[in-house]
């Protein structure tokens, strides 16, 4: 029985899809079978980030409605052979997904994979609640920025009330992944610090992903950043986060940037 993970945030543009692809690929590289599932019906993008946009024949809704079987719709990654994608539909609207249909697909994926990673759409509407509904645990993506943290707080509230795990009283496991972290600005006190965000959201930290040009480069070429540029700090941070998910006690590394004495002296005082 695999583990179902939802990647969610409330706010758009914080890195849900990037993180789904990067963590999915990092987990698959350890030999585990991973399915990444796009829940963003009508605005799918995980296929593009994974570089599989021209290979989508059947999608999630086709499977949920019984028009195709799972094996027909799953797209195997060309780089990591234990990594699969289930794309969202681009032409249908979000109401095409029903709770029963989603449950059936997730149950089948859970039987066949070690990890099922659900890429949630932004917002707190039906698409987002369906994506989290059957999850065993959640990765909440936040940027160190006020609107993102506020929305994450709201999403944590939904995770604690609208998921099956929450309703059963068992509670859903939650992890915080802080993305687009800029160490230079953090050092100058221009961003919420890691401690501030942890203090406010009070869920355990899974990782800190530094702001990196490698993320954009990876999405340009359609490859998860964790396998596209393994030497980059962002890739290393995603790989560490994936290992922590597997229970490996990887020490938390704080992204740093070399600051000159000049920068240190004057930078600290800037508001």
């Amino acid at each position: 029985m695999g583990k179902v993970l939802v990647v969610t945030s409330g706010k758009g543009g914080v890195g849900k899809t990037t993180s789904t692809a990067a963590i999915g690929a990092a987990l698959a590289q350890t030999g585990q079978k991973v399915a990444v599932v796009d829940f963003d019906v009508g605005l799918r993008n995980l296929d593009l980030i994974m570089g599989a946009e021209r290979r989508v024949v059947f999608d999630f809704i086709n499977v949920a409605q019984g028009d195709a079987n799972l094996s027909q719709a799953l797209i195997r990654d060309k780089r990591v052979d234990t990594l699969y994608l289930l794309a969202a539909s681009q032409t249908r609207d979000k109401d095409a997904l029903t709770e029963e249909g989603v449950k059936r697909v997730i149950d089948e994926l859970r039987d066949r994979f070690d990890w099922v990673i659900c890429d949630s759409p932004a917002g707190i509407e039906r698409g987002a609640t369906l994506a989290m509904r059957y999850a065993d645990s959640a990765i909440v993506i936040a940027n160190p920025e006020v609107s993102s943290v506020r929305d994450s707080d709201r999403i944590i509230g939904l995770l604690d009330s609208k998921t099956l795990k929450a309703e059963s009283g068992e509670g859903i496991e939650k992890h915080l992944l802080l993305t687009r972290y800029d160490p230079a600005r953090a050092a100058r006190g221009e961003m919420l610090s890691v401690e501030d965000v942890l203090d406010i959201l009070s869920i355990p930290l899974l990782g800190i992903i530094p702001e990196s040009q490698d993320v954009l480069k990876a999405s340009n070429v359609g490859a998860p950043v964790s396998i596209n540029s393994t030497t980059s700090a962002a890739a290393a941070a995603y790989i560490d986060a994936a290992r922590r998910l597997c229970g490996v006690p990887v020490p938390m590394t704080r992204p740093t940037e070399k600051v000159s004495m000049f920068g240190r002296f004057f930078g600290r005082r800037a508001a």
Binding site: E145, V146, V149, R150, D153, R154, G157, L158, S161, A186, R188, G189, E190, M191, L192, S193, D196, D199, I200, A270, A271
Partner: peptide, 23 residues
């Protein structure tokens, strides 16, 4: 006086209020 601290304080006040109504 750093803007990061201003951000934290604003959020703490706001979220205390929002959590009270719990969505």
């Amino acid at each position: 006086a750093n803007s990061g601290n201003v951000a934290r304080e604003r959020l703490q006040i706001l979220l205390t209020h929002e959590r009270r109504s719990g969505g």
